[in-house]
C-alpha cells in the first residue's frame, strides 16, 4: 500500500496541527563547532528528560549541539511528527534525528517530511503486532489489557536492566499514554521514503525485552544495513548503566558519515 500523497497534503492544508508550547531540553557545546545539531526524540511514556540524564550532555561534550523534545500532552502520531519537524526546522542547521523506542517510529515518519542530515533509530519499536509477543512474555499483566483495547502499562523489567540503581526513579517518571496513541503509532500507514536520502543507523540490544532481535534486523535491513548491537543492555539504552557505549558508537558513526 502506498502511503498517502507526499505532494498533496490536504490534512496539513485544511486542518493544521494546532501549536503548543513544546518542552525542549538542550545541551550546547562551547564554542559551537561545525557539527550539525542532534535532535533526540523519546518514545511513548518518556519525556525529554530521558535524554537529559546522560546523552544530551555527552553529545554536547563531543561537539554536537544536542536537543530533545517531549511528546505533547494529549498528542497523536500526526502531532508528534509535526512537533519533531517543527523543532528540527527551528534549529540553525540541518539536524540529525535520533528516535528511541516508539520515538523511532515518529522519526521514521518525520524523515518523510524533513530532509534530516542523518537519522538514528535506537531500540526502534516495530510497527504492528510484532512488538506484542515480546511484551506479553516479559510483562503479561501490563500487556494483556492492550489486547482488549486498553493502554499497556510498561513495567520496570521491560525497560531497565535488573541491577540498575536509578531504575525505580526513572520508572516513576513515566507518564501513561492513552491506548489510542499506542494504536496510532503502531498501526499507522508505513512511513513514506525519507526525503533527501539521509544515512540511517539502527542500534539496539539483543537483550531488549520490548524490541525482539529479529525486528531490529528487519528495521535495519529496510534502511540497507545491519543493526549495531549492544548485548546486555536493556530497552532504555540512554538510561542504562552502560549508557556511554551506544552514544559513543552513534557519534563515531555520525562523524564518519558526515566526513564522507
Amino acid at each position: 500500500m502506498r502511503a498517502s500523497s507526499q505532494v498533496l497534503r490536504f490534512a496539513d492544508w485544511t486542518s493544521p496541527v494546532p501549536p503548543v508550547a513544546r518542552e525542549v531540553l538542550s545541551a550546547v557545546p562551547e564554542p559551537a563547532g561545525d557539527q550539525p545539531p542532534v535532535l533526540f526524540v523519546p518514545g511513548l511514556g518518556h519525556g525529554a528528560w530521558a535524554f537529559a540524564e546522560h546523552w544530551l550532555g555527552h553529545t554536547a561534550a563531543r561537539g554536537f549541539a544536542a536537543y530533545s523534545v517531549s511528546p505533547r500532552a494529549d498528542g497523536s502520531l500526526r502531532a508528534y511528527v509535526h512537533d519533531v519537524v517543527q523543532v528540527a526546522a527551528s534549529l540553525p542547521r540541518q539536524a540529525v534525528l535520533l528516535g528511541h523506542g516508539a520515538g523511532a517510529l515518529v522519526v521514521a515518519h518525520a524523515l518523510a517530511r524533513y530532509p534530516a542530515r542523518a537519522a538514528v533509530l535506537a531500540s526502534p519499536v516495530p510497527e504492528g503486532w510484532s512488538a506484542l509477543g515480546a511484551a506479553l512474555r516479559t510483562n503479561p499483566f501490563g500487556t494483556l489489557p492492550a489486547l482488549f483495547g486498553a493502554a499497556p502499562r510498561l513495567s520496570r523489567r521491560q525497560l531497565f536492566g535488573a541491577g540498575q540503581a536509578a531504575a525505580a526513579a526513572h520508572h516513576a517518571r513515566l507518564v501513561p499514554t492513552p491506548a489510542r496513541v499506542y494504536r496510532q503509532v503502531l498501526f499507522a500507514t508505513p512511513p513514506a521514503a525519507p526525503v533527501g536520502d539521509p544515512p540511517v543507523l539502527v542500534v539496539g540490544s539483543p537483550d531488549d525485552r520490548v524490541v525482539p532481535r529479529k525486528a531490529l534486523d528487519r528495521t535495519a535491513a529496510r534502511h540497507g544495513g545491519a543493526p549495531l548491537l549492544f548485548p546486555g543492555m536493556a530497552h532504555d539504552l540512554m538510561l542504562d548503566e552502560s549508557w556511554p557505549e551506544p552514544i559513543d558508537a552513534i557519534l563515531d558513526w555520525l562523524t564518519k558519515e558526515l566526513a564522507a
Partner: peptide
C-alpha cells in the same frame, strides 16, 4: 495562509 505557503519540507513556525 501559512500552511498553503510554506515549503513542504521546512514548515514556518506553527505559532
Amino acid at each position: 495562509s501559512r500552511p498553503l505557503t510554506e515549503f513542504p519540507d521546512f514548515p514556518m513556525p506553527d505559532d
